[in-house]
Simulated scan of single mutants.
Amino acid sequence: MYLVAIAWIYVALMMVLAEATSSQGSVLGAIVTFALYGVLPVSIVLYLLGTPARRAARRRAEAAAAPAPSNQADGSGHAPGEPLVAEGKEP
């Protein structure tokens, strides 16, 4: 993934060098070329390709921050007591 990004930045730098040293080019044009053809597309692609890793890291962090499950059957953490019986009725 990073090899392609490095290669694209290299190509963009060669475009910048050609524009800056050309008799019809300018340094400002070279800077705009590097920003629009180099940095912007590479940053978008790396952000999109890094989404699964960020999602997995967020899930790991949420799992680590979650409270430990209790030993109670209902998972409430309270001690078991007598079952509730409706008034006037016997079990």
Rank of each mutant, 00 (worst) to 15 (best):
13 L>D: 00
22 S>E: 06
49 L>K: 03
45 V>Y: 04
91 P>I: 13
58 R>W: 04
89 K>C: 03
89 K>G: 05
60 R>Y: 01
78 H>S: 15
26 S>D: 12
53 A>H: 04
52 P>H: 06
32 V>M: 14
66 A>N: 06
5 A>F: 06
50 G>E: 07
76 S>Y: 14
36 L>K: 11
20 A>D: 03
11 V>R: 06
65 A>Q: 04
74 D>N: 15
16 V>I: 05
52 P>C: 08
33 T>K: 11
54 R>D: 05
87 E>Q: 00
32 V>W: 14
81 G>S: 14
27 V>C: 04
44 I>F: 15
34 F>A: 13
58 R>A: 13
52 P>A: 05
46 L>K: 11
88 G>T: 04
80 P>F: 10
50 G>N: 09
4 V>G: 06
22 S>P: 06
61 A>Y: 00
56 A>Y: 08
20 A>K: 01
91 P>A: 14
5 A>M: 10
85 V>C: 12
13 L>W: 05
75 G>L: 14
67 P>G: 10
87 E>H: 06
34 F>S: 01
56 A>N: 10
57 A>I: 07
9 I>S: 13
32 V>A: 15
80 P>Y: 00
11 V>I: 11
31 I>A: 08
59 R>Y: 02
82 E>T: 08
7 A>S: 02
76 S>W: 11
79 A>S: 14
64 A>E: 11
84 L>S: 08
67 P>C: 12
51 T>H: 06
30 A>Y: 01
29 G>H: 04
77 G>T: 02
82 E>I: 01
77 G>H: 09
6 I>D: 06
11 V>A: 11
69 P>K: 15
52 P>L: 10
12 A>P: 03
14 M>V: 14
24 Q>M: 10
5 A>K: 03
35 A>Y: 05
82 E>R: 11
11 V>G: 01
13 L>A: 10
41 P>S: 09
59 R>D: 12
61 A>Q: 03
64 A>F: 09
4 V>Y: 00
44 I>R: 11
67 P>E: 11
68 A>P: 02
39 V>L: 13
31 I>P: 07
4 V>K: 04
83 P>E: 15
29 G>S: 12
67 P>W: 02
36 L>M: 12
54 R>E: 06
57 A>F: 05
27 V>M: 13
89 K>R: 12
41 P>T: 03
